[in-house]
């Protein structure tokens, strides 16, 4: 019985850990797409954030500074995407693809300069802390490696991610700014006739999406693992993008979709650790297959913001 509870605790814990980077990035996706700008470049922004976070945490020996640098790095690429898509009315998908290459390429380029030609950073000693660690262990409130420890003794990024879901939801649905973002994503012409600056709103939203994708990258490189490597992100940005769509462009929906993917990942690791006689490649497929099957089966038709991907030009006819 104890073993089963412990196993469940292990799966929940891994779920939380692996969901966190996706949650951040997915929130970024929600913000930008709610304003009507598609950001397929989340992968590249996450990639760059993962590198910037690990490198900064390594050199400054401060994980929080690492987190900040990751967010700013992501935001930088968000700015580039905004300049291309909003100011120059570029095709948003094309700009996003370019940013995927540029984000990854520039991260590797800087990595080779800073780390002696290596496409990975050195191990980060000062990782993101586990804020509730003091509750667990010999003679503490909960024993170590128990259910409570496995579930609740997590990195700070996990708690931040959950708080962010609430904050983004609150801002989008309860504040003036959020209402304007959503209005711009649905009907920019209407917003424009009411004196709302579509350009400013979209710049803000796209930059914020980069900010969150950067956080997502760092949540990977200095929390889940302790270094950046060139295969670390490999598709997580796209998974986050898909989670945002499955989550119907809502923060809470994206959270559920990310958790589902994380759970599938946790299950994969659990089965692997148990030594189930299944090829590891098949196990590694599991998260993707489960996610697609469950989400396609459950979610049904989704309605994106009406003006998504459409170029808005003032006074354009």
């Amino acid at each position: 019985m104890d073993v089963i509870i412990q196993d469940i605790g292990f799966i929940i814990g891994t779920t939380l850990m692996y969901s966190t980077p996706l949650i951040f990035t997915s929130l970024g996706g929600v913000i930008t797409e709610r304003s009507g700008v598609v950001n397929i470049g989340l992968e590249g922004m996450m990639y760059f954030g993962a590198f910037a976070g690990a490198a900064a945490a390594y050199f400054f020996q401060d994980p929080w500074l690492g987190l900040l640098c990751a967010a700013l790095g992501g935001a930088f690429w968000g700015l580039i995407h905004a300049i291309a898509c909003v100011s120059f009315a570029a095709e948003q998908i094309v700009s996003g693809i370019a940013i995927n290459f540029l984000g990854a390429g520039s991260a590797l380029f800087i990595s080779r300069i800073l780390f002696d030609g290596a496409t990975q950073t050195l191990t980060v000693v000062d990782k993101i802390p586990q804020p509730l660690n003091f509750l667990f262990g010999e003679g503490k409130l909960f024993p170590s490696s128990g259910f409570m420890d496995l579930v609740f003794n997590r990195f700070a990024t996990v708690y931040i991610a959950f708080a962010m879901v609430f904050i983004v939801w609150f801002v989008l649905y309860k504040t003036k700014t959020g209402m304007r973002v959503r209005a711009v994503g649905e009907n920019p012409e209407a917003a424009n006739t009411l004196g709302i600056s579509v350009v400013k709103i979209r710049y803000g939203a796209v930059i914020m999406s980069g900010f969150f994708a950067g956080l997502g990258g760092a949540a990977m490189s200095i929390a889940v693992v302790s270094r950046f490597s060139n295969t670390l992100i490999s598709g997580h940005g796209f998974i986050a993008l898909a989670a945002m769509i499955f989550g119907k462009w809502k923060p809470q929906g994206a959270l559920v979709a990310c958790l589902l993917f994380g759970a599938a990942k946790g299950f994969e690791i659990y089965l692997g650790a148990k030594g189930v006689p299944v090829a590891s490649d098949v196990l590694a497929m599991l998260p993707y297959v489960i996610t697609i099957v469950v989400l396609v089966g459950i979610v049904g038709k989704t309605v994106p913001p009406a003006a998504i991907g459409k170029i808005f030009e003032k006074g354009g006819h």
Partner: peptide, 22 residues
């Protein structure tokens, strides 16, 4: 020039919204 998924009130106040703090 209306935002279809918004309510009547939201459409009317858009761009000129009454707010509390923050």
């Amino acid at each position: 020039m209306l935002v279809d998924p918004f309510t009547v009130t939201e459409n009317i106040i858009l761009g000129n919204e009454p707010t509390k703090t923050f």
